[in-house]
Amino acid sequence: MSGFNLMEDKLTNAQIAWRAAQDIEDGSYVNLGIGFPEMIAKFQPDGRDVTYHTENGVLGFGKAPAEGQEDWDLINAGKKAITLKPGASFFHHADSFSMVRGGHLDLAVLGAYQVAQNGDLANWRVGTKGVPAVGGAMDLVHGAKRVAVVTDHVTKDGGPKLVEACTFPLTGVGCVTRVYTSLAVIDIEDSKFVLREKLPGITLDALQAVTGATLHIVGEVAELNVPEGIS
């Protein structure tokens, strides 16, 4: 075995976000889910012009303002203060979700509790306790041309998050097309997980062992390498 330590050698969230950012195309309209997926904007490659959408009705927002400079009427769906880029626009909620459902967004990136090999996503609720809340997740998974997930490959207990079938309540059926994990990049094609990239340090067997469904290999599996300085 290679000496790969699953918990120590896996990618950090920032490193996963960096990898996901590399696939965001120039000229695209993108919605990044609240929390971890939002980090992807920080790693947008130079020279690419990307317009970010937020569900509460802003297109073309930029970085957070400096502390003390917030205008709390200008927020994103995560209720964080934002700034505007030149060319930004405001619109009401029905127009905002028309952009989503109408297929006008190129990419939506969300977090996940579980992703199934058929593209089912569970990311809004883990059980029946507490106060349920869904927000825009169920809308976002239907409409964007590509729906990607960023996630740790395994749960905090080391159990698989990529599974044959979700056991948590579903957010959407057959909606995810690509998963960026802390160990690999995996596409979902014809209800199968197709391994595209993996960390060079982990063996295929070790990766399969922490994945809850069969990883299919179609052609070459590339090395997943993240530049120094991203942590």
Partner: peptide
């Protein structure tokens, strides 16, 4: 959590529409 208020949960875009 005390059962003193009802909740109808609707996805955000569906609520708007």
């Amino acid at each position: 959590l005390a059962g003193e208020i009802e909740l109808e949960l609707i996805p955000q875009g569906t609520l708007a529409e």
